[in-house]
Design a protein around this nucleic acid. Structure first.
Lengths: 215, 215
DNA sequence: GCATCTCATATTGGATACAATAATACTTGA
DNA sequence: TCAAGTATTATTGTATCCAATATGAGATGC
């Protein structure tokens, strides 16, 4: 089992939360799979109570689905719902980018460029690329300095993760999307918020078509 | 204490959830107020466990904030965060409206008109007006038939509720916003999705300025 | 008189135990 | 052999109990 980011001084709820989340993000737990409370509790050496608690939090994040008396399973989204999530991500991250641009410092812009560079640098290693890609979008969104907007975007990206994993795995277009991101960096440097908003929205929304081709 | 929508055959978690939520929506519980687990449990004649569970769900909804070892309190948002939420609502509901328009039936359009009429009809009774106003926006959003989008919008509107209550209470511009909504109905009837999206976004976003004037 | 430290109290977090519900296997009748 | 009903098992939901942490009051020293 892979090493998880679990600290010994974390509280049981936190441990359970990150444990399950990491399992979902890593693809170990796939959409639709059941998440039995007891087994997890035993695995972590804690009682079912904090696990239950963590599951409720993950439900709020859209990562798991809980049905009364039938327990939790990894959230499963239909292709229509995946499209829906992408559309939401598109407008929210586009909004974040628009709000971010006017207050971005030179340092932040060069940091964004660095993240883009790193993304292209690991384009051969799928897992690393996904992570770097996430970092890029996370960073641009984070530059908005709007905590709730950042949180929502992260949630949506988290919901999509299991589906994008298989998508990217079968896609050979990593380089092309690399160019896509370059154009975003350019738009940032150009400094027009409205234009950046449109571009980010279109960029994220583009995934709808590519995913549609797969399904 | 006001009558709540609590059915006797509801499970304890559901009872607790709706009990707390209603208390927040009605304004009985104001932002920042603590929500002591034990007192509520006693009030409802159940144990603290289901209350705890309900609180975690409400945390996911953004209605309460839970801090480790310090319990739950009604979520409190700074004016910056309120603006943030409005901006998110604006883009999401605008998106929903755009997606809804092409698939709206004549029946749905006239239902929307009816809701608008009802809104104007109760413009003297603040509580009723807020409820009717919510119904109007909810309905337009719901016409998108996108479950996740609908859920997110509802969450955001819920987060704003406590702040809009005081806003509307001090505002004398109910009639003006009535005209505002008429223009939305007109845009729906015009049938241009892109235009409707812009109008809905502007309409929701408008609250930013009005709220800013108050603070 | 003020700050700080300690102790008491209230409230939350977690574990165990029991009850209720759902899923499954089995039996019984046709 | 199949269907339906029943019983068994597994899993979840709730309650109670104990531990840990935070809060506030009071005492003690400066």
């Amino acid at each position: 089992m892979t090493q998880r980011f679990i600290n010994n001084k974390m509280s049981p709820v936190e441990r359970a939360y990150h444990y399950i989340l990491d399992a979902i993000l890593s693809g170990e737990l796939e959409p639709g799979m059941r998440v039995p409370t007891e087994a997890l509790a035993e695995n972590l050496g804690i009682s079912r109570m904090p696990v239950r608690d963590a599951l409720r939090q993950l439900e709020g994040d859209g990562a798991v689905t809980i049905i009364a008396n039938r327990g939790a399973s990894v959230a499963q989204y239909s292709s229509e719902e995946v499209v829906e999530i992408i559309e939401m991500r598109a407008v929210l991250e586009a909004l974040a980018a628009r709000l971010a641009l006017p207050r971005m410092s030179a340092t932040e812009i060069s940091e964004l460029e660095h993240l883009h560079w790193r993304m292209q640098n690991v384009s051969q290693d799928l897992t690393a690329w996904i992570s770097a890609h996430d970092d890029f979008h996370n960073y641009l969104t984070a530059c908005s300095k709007r905590p709730l907007l950042i949180q929502q975007s992260q949630r949506l990206r988290l919901m999509l993760r299991p589906y994008f994993r298989s998508y990217y795995a079968e896609s050979k277009e990593l380089e092309i999307t690399g160019l896509e991101h370059q154009s975003l960096v350019d738009a940032v440097k150009a400094g027009d918020p409205e234009d950046l908003e449109r571009k980010v929205r279109a960029h994220v929304r583009q995934n709808v078509e590519t995913i549609a081709k797969l399904a």
